[in-house]
Nucleic acid binder design. Sequence first.
DNA 1: GTGAAAGCGCTAACAT
DNA 2: ATGTTAGCGCTTTCAC
Lengths: 357, 357
Amino acid sequence: MARRRLAVTIKHVAADAGVSLQTVSRVINDEPNVRPEMRERVKASIDRLGYVPSIAAQRMSGSRSYLILALNDRERTIADWRARQGTDWVDQMLLGGMLECAEHGYRLIFELVDTHADHLARELGAALSALQPDGAILTPPHSDNPHILAILARHHVPYARIGAQDDKHGGTADGIRVSMDDEGAARLATRHLLDLGHRRIGFISGPEEYRLAGRRVDGWRAEMADAGAASDGLLQAGDFSYASGFRAAQALLAPIDRPTAIIASNDQMALATIEAARERSLDIPYDLSLVSFDNTPLVRFTTPPLTAVDQPIAETTATAVRLLIQSQRDPAALPGPVVIPMGLVERASTAPPVHAA
Amino acid sequence: MARRRLAVTIKHVAADAGVSLQTVSRVINDEPNVRPEMRERVKASIDRLGYVPSIAAQRMSGSRSYLILALNDRERTIADWRARQGTDWVDQMLLGGMLECAEHGYRLIFELVDTHADHLARELGAALSALQPDGAILTPPHSDNPHILAILARHHVPYARIGAQDDKHGGTADGIRVSMDDEGAARLATRHLLDLGHRRIGFISGPEEYRLAGRRVDGWRAEMADAGAASDGLLQAGDFSYASGFRAAQALLAPIDRPTAIIASNDQMALATIEAARERSLDIPYDLSLVSFDNTPLVRFTTPPLTAVDQPIAETTATAVRLLIQSQRDPAALPGPVVIPMGLVERASTAPPVHAA
DNA sequence: GTGAAAGCGCTAACAT
DNA sequence: ATGTTAGCGCTTTCAC
């Protein structure tokens, strides 16, 4: 069976326009040294023939692949998908990432990567060798994984690290860094509750391997301190799971001098806090105010709908893509760490404490 | 700046194993005419060097690209992402599609395609020329779009149509077809309500351009007829939007002889029905039973949680991928239309009617 | 069963 | 400002 190559190639365009391959290539890549009239002629041929460069061929000859890899944690992502809890992290990433890529003629490819070290080098290496992307976007917890950074570096793939905290090599700019202002957001949430009149504000933290979890704790503690409110005994450790959130909420709500408000550092743990409050017949928001983190879709459908810190995932991903592409064009100017502000969406789960105001 | 090609290529493997390029190629592609011992030797070299074939090069020389495109409607998908209502169609597609692809050494690339005819040919053509995928998965409403099918055919890209109803060219097997059993599911939902003792069961339909919407209506009507229950005046047209669902529910609930149960053909319209019932002080499930379609995450968080028909999107997508890949291996045997059964998840929104049982 | 040669579509380096 | 040449990594003939 003869392979029918119906695809129009650069040759057809060259013939049609009566120029050399090279001139067509120059036009495609917006390179100099082509007279305007030639350029127009070639463009006309391209349009007429409906020519589109083959990414494979472009990549083969050492040029760009116009592919950007979005690397996410396999285990966690699949678990989220299976759980069907409405977590839309992936969707928001695609929304921000794909649209921004399209803007620049790139394409975003979503890829799952195992954290487990054995597979890691093989798996990620395979993806990089096979696809040869022009860049990669790392999400937590990969953003701070030195193994992954090393593999990327070995393959000369530039990367943007979302939510990465520090440079690994003391001061050396290690990839592009784009973070959400988790600390500021925690302050914002805490301030909101303080303003309502709360003084005893509990906090349920996330797991330590997520650096952003620590930053959220820092923000809460700092804002409490600034207000002269004690935070001792008001911190409970969770791991972002419902079960851990439930235990943490129970621990916070058990004492007589229980907090009048709780900040949960993600939505699942906030959900668990609602349940823990219900068990003790505490009414939200009157007996207990609750602020959640992340603002995933489900918090609009809980009873009551939750006041929540909003994670601007789409905007953050778009920014990462933009900086990555810009830095290819001008490899000199790597931008410093960029911080995207987070917002607070007030809903019905926060109110003044009963005995205050 | 010298381009440092650190990647290990087929040459390195050939040299390392002391064989020709061709033999390595045969091993990679599991082709015959290689002695077992040679094969082992080459495999050992591949492992040692961590060699991975470059997709670009493979594609260049006329072989597979190991890429499968998942085509979704741009406007609708972006709107869903922006709305953040917890619709996880895309996630479930990725779950089923990516994992099944990985199983066979393929990769799934998620792509948005405009329905608007002008752009369509350019856009989709560009994606196909650039990526040269080995196959495409079409989702509604693209599955039945003759324009898209034609462009795919012109580029010789085999496709699987999810939720496509009929062959376009009367009997000619037009691509692979995988559908969910919408009619059966509607019957299932209706039967569930009939079994509870309901006789007046209202139905809120979806827009006509989605063929599955029509099939859901058919199933409801057929099951009602089988039970000897009248369906006249119990059908209201919606378009899958909240607003349309609200209007439809209002129309259904206004008459004195209002239905004791309603089936909404998607979750947004079910949500709207909850609100419409609340406005008339109708308690769900006691005054009104409600069954939803799709089982997106949000229906677990409503009050009450909704009994819903579950769309097995992941399984359907996985099946489409599997059939697509199989049919490349053995182009002879294109399977007939495959139907994936849907299930009913019972939650708290359905109960016997007050004046029955 | 194995290898050598040609070529896929494109761009970098080097002419002109 | 434009054309020519070589080669990217791989698979497909076609020899042996």
